[in-house]
Design a protein around this nucleic acid. Sequence first.
DNA 1: GTCTATAACGAGATAGAC
DNA 2: GTCTATCTCGTTATAGAC
Lengths: 188, 188
Amino acid sequence: MDTKEHILASAQRLVQQRGFNGFSYADVAEEVGIRKASLHHHFASKADLGVALIESYAAQFDDALAHIDASGSKPLDKLKAYVAIYRSTLESDRICMCGMLATEVLTLDVGMLPKLARFFARNTEWLAQVLTEGKAGGTLFLEGAAADHARAAVSTLQGASLVCRSTGDLDAFDRTTALLINGFSRKG
Amino acid sequence: MDTKEHILASAQRLVQQRGFNGFSYADVAEEVGIRKASLHHHFASKADLGVALIESYAAQFDDALAHIDASGSKPLDKLKAYVAIYRSTLESDRICMCGMLATEVLTLDVGMLPKLARFFARNTEWLAQVLTEGKAGGTLFLEGAAADHARAAVSTLQGASLVCRSTGDLDAFDRTTALLINGFSRKG
DNA sequence: GTCTATAACGAGATAGAC
DNA sequence: GTCTATCTCGTTATAGAC
């Protein structure tokens, strides 16, 4: 991992744990083991770093989704795998970086906003496809538009992460996601 | 409204829009029309202000829930009224203050944390009671524990607020909450 | 590409007069 | 209860040597 990747990884973790307004170049510099000034060589401004972070994070998410697709799993198992992404994030004391940024949207550089919106659109589209596939195959059950159910599922996962964080109750997250999965597993 | 209440109202709005790490005493002072130093007379530290903000916000929420209870509405209408609280918050370009704080939890003074967790517990308990009432009366339908459904509903509302914020799509929020309400309205 | 040094500004907080 | 003045520290960012 070269320095630029090291910076991105460190900053990403800090955003996921503390928010974009909750970390500084000093935090990153200490973790990476270089001086603050050197960070500016890689990312001239914090806004530039922010844009790069979203791009990098979205690419990681796309990879994860592509990996789920490549597994050839049944739609229900794809859904479970998607939920597992959020759960493992919570386990490492983080939340979705874009969920965090979404709350801070009014304080962010405008250059970050289109990429942020794109992240949620991409997630919803992928999940809608899984749900549509499951409905067509008769293994998942939903009334109404798959896109709406997909958006609602993303919302539930983001919100459950947030609530779980304040209560420190990972078991509550599991019970919420169990209901989510269950809702698609039986005729309703 | 005396000065202390004015400060709380201004700070609350700033937290809901920008986060606890996204506003400063200078922002509040300008809005209230006093100097930064004067703020410290009312709230010695920002952490003290934070604690007072959660207490005040929780009290407002309790009032709103009590008002819904006093309306004598049917459980389904109580659920809709609860959803409407979140919607009107979004309309004024804010999100739930405690949802915002929940994401920033790792940066907050520890004195704020118990009150924050209590807010979510209180919301979940109230909603669980509404769902239980509706189930008993045969007007709402749910499988499994009402507490789990209540927690999931709170998560969905928090998450939908967050997602709506980044996409600026209030209609998407409405479609998500429609699914939520619909899920309790029909046998499943 | 990294460093030292420093600029320029804003943050939370305090002292003491009125 | 509010003010002016100030402190101390942390923030992003830049200049220029190595």
